[in-house]
Design a binder for these strands. Structure first.
Lengths: 217, 217
DNA sequence: AAACTGCCAACTGTCGACAGTTGACACGTT
DNA sequence: AACGTGTCAACTGTCGACAGTTGGCAGTTT
């Protein structure tokens, strides 16, 4: 998906993976600063590759750079969340439209499987894992077959994960989300691009609202 | 617009500006490789800051990195152009919708001014400068007041400029574009988000087609 | 003559060290 | 006691040098 940038053997590439993991899991708490020498020692590499890794994560929006001060993991204001979801909505609505017109039959089966698994999980009393929500959106993205849109959505979703102070623990919200997903799949199955877009917009609007409420407690 | 990342005093930041300029103006031709030591010497800086600049431009899509081989300025295939315009359409249609509902009166005046200047230029027999087209889209973006969407559009537009093998020299195309712009402004003036989105989609579809034809000669 | 093999130059990846800037603490002043 | 000032440690920005890899060229073999 990304441009041919397989940084995955270089030290910088490995550092990107490790740091991204730590930032997304909250191992490095929002607001805290990333000390170059300290982290470099901890990773057993020199500052050069680490700096490249930090800059890369900054370009993904997972860190913010302040000259002569270093890199910080950003904590978002409500306005940030709203603006971010405007971007996400633009991208994912377009993806939903494209998916409705381009999806293959195996795409459809995969989407239905993810939905079914979510239901099973939910009825078993377990919480709707964020993992399955992510899987749904990524499957839809694959069905849209628009590499640049997919890539951008991936980046936006990462930033959303960073704000997951709002974990989807609210049962009615989970239920509504699963209903949205089901309706989305039906629209895509019918090839109804307009409806797919509309449902996606409503879905993301709901998720955004949920995040905003649990952000302000 | 960008996160607080004012790299504009550091050597790396300056190198980003210089290199971006050179790539966008074609001073560094597509397909050619960027030699780190050579460019570093030419800029009078060391390889460290230059590498950061290269990585940054790569994250913007203006360069592609190949491990152990270096950075290349990408040349696009028709499929790339199509996929890129799918992204651009998603973003700018959303921006048009938002602009229709959020624009202030001064936003409207600015949009009308840009259109008027384009007409004047055209009637004076001069070609429709890409500069004014860019100005229009950026003014619209400002009216949308969605920082993340604006930022992404900025990046996509850069990549489009990189492919400007299709210079807008075709008079009927120029005329159609100006008509699109005018119609877009009317829709935004009326606060008609749906129409703004539709017109924008048609406009970008036209521009994309134009690019594809002049890409294949 | 074509194909294979080994060597070589060029370049990227990485490292350790130096220089400049920032924020904070301690001290002195009013 | 509050405020302004000077100093200092910590950290980022930058540099030059070394190590590892890649692609190409020359030489050899069949």
């Amino acid at each position: 998906m990304t441009p041919p940038t397989p940084l995955h053997l270089s030290l910088a590439g490995q550092a990107v993976d490790v740091l991204r993991e730590q930032v997304l899991t909250g191992e490095i708490t929002p607001g805290s600063r990333v000390n170059e020498v300290e982290v470099a020692q901890k990773l057993g590499i020199s500052r050069g590759p680490l700096r490249e890794a930090i800059r890369h994560l900054a370009s993904e929006g997972l860190l913010t750079l302040v000259p002569h001060r270093g890199a910080f993991v950003p904590d978002a204001s409500p306005d940030d969340v709203r603006a971010l979801f405007e971007l996400r909505t633009a991208l994912e609505c377009a993806a939903a439209e494209l998916a409705a017109s381009r999806r293959t039959d195996v795409d459809l089966v995969r989407l239905q499987e993810v939905c079914a698994e979510s239901r099973r999980n939910y009825k078993a009393g377990q919480p709707f894992p964020y993992r399955l929500d992510l899987a749904f959106h990524q499957t839809l993205l694959h069905a849209a077959r628009s590499p640049y849109i997919s890539e951008q959505v991936r980046l936006v979703q990462q930033r959303v994960v960073l704000l997951r102070s709002a974990l989807a623990d609210d049962p009615p919200h989970q239920h509504a989300s699963m209903d949205d997903h089901d309706e989305l799949v039906r629209a895509i199955a019918d090839g109804d691009a307009a409806k797919a877009s509309t449902v996606m917009r409503r879905h993301l609007s709901r998720v955004c609202a949920q995040m905003l409420t649990s952000l302000t407690h």
